[in-house]
C-alpha cells in the first residue's frame, strides 16, 4: 500500500467524493469538513489539484459552468480506490483506538 496522503490532498479527494466541484466549492467543502481548520489559498489549492491531475487521481470535467469560467473536477477510478484505501486505514486506526480505550468510551482519554 502506498504511504498516507498529505492532509490537503486527502481533503480534496474527500470533498470530491460527494460530487464534482470547482475551485471555490472545493475550498468551502474542505473548510466545512475540517471544522474551519484547513483554509486554503488559491495557489495552494491549484498546486495540489495539478499534482492530483498528474497522478490521475482526479480529472477535469469535460464541461465548465454556464459562463465557462469555472472548471469542475471529479474523482477518477484510481482516485476512488486511493480514497477508500485511506479511509479503511483511518477506520482501522479508530478501531484500534477504541480497543485501547483511547476513544469513544466512558473513561476514555480522548
Amino acid at each position: 500500500m502506498a504511504g498516507l496522503l498529505p492532509q490537503v490532498t486527502f481533503s480534496i479527494l474527500f470533498a470530491l467524493s460527494l460530487k464534482p466541484r470547482h475551485g471555490y466549492e472545493l475550498m468551502q467543502q474542505i473548510e466545512h469538513d475540517s471544522n474551519g481548520r484547513i483554509k486554503l489559498g488559491p495557489g495552494a489549492l491549484y498546486g495540489t489539484i495539478k499534482q492530483l491531475v498528474n497522478d490521475n487521481l482526479i480529472e477535469e470535467m469535460p464541461f465548465a459552468d454556464d459562463s465557462k469560467r469555472r472548471k469542475y473536477y471529479r474523482l477518477t477510478k484510481k482516485g476512488w480506490d486511493r480514497l477508500s484505501a485511506e479511509l479503511k486505514y483511518f477506520e482501522q486506526t479508530v478501531k484500534l483506538a477504541r480497543q485501547r480505550k483511547f476513544l469513544g468510551q466512558a473513561g476514555a482519554r480522548i
Partner: peptide, 14 residues
Amino acid sequence: KQYNQQILQTLADM
C-alpha cells in the same frame, strides 16, 4: 496557461 484563470476566478468567488 492551465490554472491562472481558475486562480483568479476562485479569488473573485471568495
